[in-house]
Structure formats: structure tokens, C-alpha cells
Design a protein around this nucleic acid. Structure first.
Lengths: 149, 149
DNA sequence: ATCATATAATAACGCGCGTTACGTTCTTAG
DNA sequence: CTAAGAACGTAACGCGCGTTATTATATGAT
């Protein structure tokens, strides 16, 4: 059986992350941290657990990323008055210019990586990836329901 | 611009790795270690640097993976008689059954993930991924300039 | 022959991710 | 009201990956 797709998929993802992180380091950022900021910009005040559900990573991962972002003054944890277990996340003004730079570079990277491909292929691949993702997340319907955005 | 492809690509790769690693832990293995074994099976006696080139990771990464594999008795480093800087890698018999199990599970995972897709789509996506990979592997002028301080 | 450079592997450090175990704080059943 | 359980966040630990610096060895130029 030709399982080449799996290997290539992983390789491209790794190379992409490495490339992005190398650029992002000039801003003291990483890809994963950028994702947190971007999600938070669209939906301020969410809890760390909600963030973990949206990003489809474990809560502990979000906690560590938030640690670093908070240390850099890009966001803050605010205590929930009703439930003292909860920390709600809010962006700080310093995050704004960084978010814009990330978006700009992401588009640049996208142009570079998909330079060989026509629009139809990009859409087809994206669609295929979404189907694969749904297969992989099928075991956890709760997360899919939470990810409705 | 629709940069959705980048995000989906990375998500699928992460979910895939997590899934594979969870299974592989039964054998005390990880995906990355499995790749080393598989490459070595096809080409015994290569150096760590050659392995790094084939896997497109840094030599230090290979070194650490080999550390663990050697500790588990799955391979060994042999000194090169002609060049004492070099360690050549050789599989040990214990690796054989593990290699077979990995191949079996990889096929199972491939079937699960691509269950929704027809043969033509799989080939198209694989082809697109190969093109993206070549773009990312290509040394861009900007990258060279940045690297050559 | 010597000195400079290049290469193989490693050490040190940081980030991303997971699992397991734990403390704190709700919530709910009795 | 209390005891049991669930939920939120975190600490500890291991693995995967990178960059930078270091050691040991080869090789090339003068």
C-alpha cells in the first residue's frame, strides 16, 4: 500500500513550522503562541480550557503558552468573579502590532509554498485535509462541537 | 487571502503524530524513532549525518533518537576504521518485528485517514504536498542572506 | 610541517506537545 | 450540610525539534 501521503504531509508540516518559527523568533514569538493570540483576538475572555478545545491541544499546552505570552505582556489572565477555578484570557495592547505582522508573514509563506499550485488545487487539497482532520477527531465529538466558529 | 490550507495542514499532521505516538508507546517507540529504523533497514551502515540528510532534520536530532534506540538494543553505532569521527549505524535483530508492526499500523492509519477520499484525490494531494515540500526545501535567497551573517 | 578550515557528533538551552498526578474549587446527591 | 465527584489549571516528566557552541578528527594550503 502507498502510504506516502502520510510521510509527505508530516514533512511539509515540520518544514513549515520550522520556517515560520525561524522568522517569528525575531519577534520573540513562535507559531503556537501566534495561534493563541489570533484566537483570542477573535474571541476575548475565553478560558484556557475553551482555548484548548478550539486549538485541539491539551489544556496544559495552552497553560504553558499563556505563561510565556503573559510574561511578555501580550495578554493577561483575569480571575472570574463567579468561579475561582477559572482564568479568563484577555489581549493587551502590545499584541496588536504583532498580530498584524504574523498575518502578513503567513500570507507571504502561503504564497511561497503554494506557488506551483493553481487555485482549484489549493481548494481541493484544503478540502481533503478537512476531511482527514474530521476522521482524526471523530473519536472526540465534544471537541468538534466546541469548535463551531 | 485564504491561508486556511497552512493551518489545516499543520493540524492534520499534529493529530496524526499524536495518534501514531499513542499507539507506538505500546512498543516503547515513537514515530520519529520508527522513521530511523525504517530508513536504516533500507540502507544499513549509513552515518548519522547521512541519516539527518535523508530525514531532513538536524544531525543533533538524529543523535538523540539514536541514543534511545541504542539504549533499547534496536541498533548500534560502529566506529568507522578509516575516519574516527564517524559512527555508522546498524540494525540489531530486535528491530525486525517492530518494523513489521509499524508498517502494519501505518497502513491501518492511512486507510482510516483517507477513507473519505478516492484514489485520484489521494494522488493529487500527495503530488501537491511534494511540490510544497520542494518549495520549502529550496534555499531561498532571503534565507541564505539571513544565514550568512 | 604547520596552520587554517571543514566536517561528525555532541552538549546546553529553549520551545511545543503529550500523559500522569495533584490541589483547588464548584456542583450535586443524599 | 456534607460527602462524593467533576471541572479547571498546573507541576513533573519524557519525547521531538531547533539554534548555537564545543570537541575531536580530517583535509587543504602555504
Amino acid at each position: 500500500m502507498k502510504t506516502e501521503l502520510l510521510v509527505e504531509l508530516y514533512d511539509v508540516a515540520r518544514l513549515m513550522r520550522t520556517r515560520f518559527d525561524r522568522w517569528a523568533r525575531t519577534y520573540g514569538m513562535t507559531r503556537a503562541q501566534g495561534v493563541i493570540l489570533a484566537r483570542l483576538a477573535r474571541q476575548p475572555g475565553m478560558t484556557q480550557n475553551e482555548m484548548a478545545g478550539l486549538c485541539e491541544v491539551e489544556p496544559i499546552t495552552v497553560g504553558r503558552l499563556v505563561d510565556r505570552l503573559e510574561a511578555r505582556g501580550l495578554l493577561e489572565r483575569r480571575l472570574d468573579p463567579a468561579d475561582r477555578r477559572i482564568r479568563r484570557l484577555h489581549l493587551l495592547p502590545a499584541a496588536e502590532p504583532i498580530l498584524q505582522e504574523i498575518q502578513r508573514y503567513k500570507e507571504e509563506l502561503f504564497r511561497e509554498i503554494t506557488g506551483d499550485l493553481d487555485q482549484a488545487t489549493v481548494e481541493l487539497v484544503t478540502d481533503a485535509l478537512l476531511k482527514m482532520k474530521s476522521k482524526l477527531t471523530m473519536e472526540t465529538p465534544a471537541k468538534i462541537a466546541a469548535a463551531g466558529e
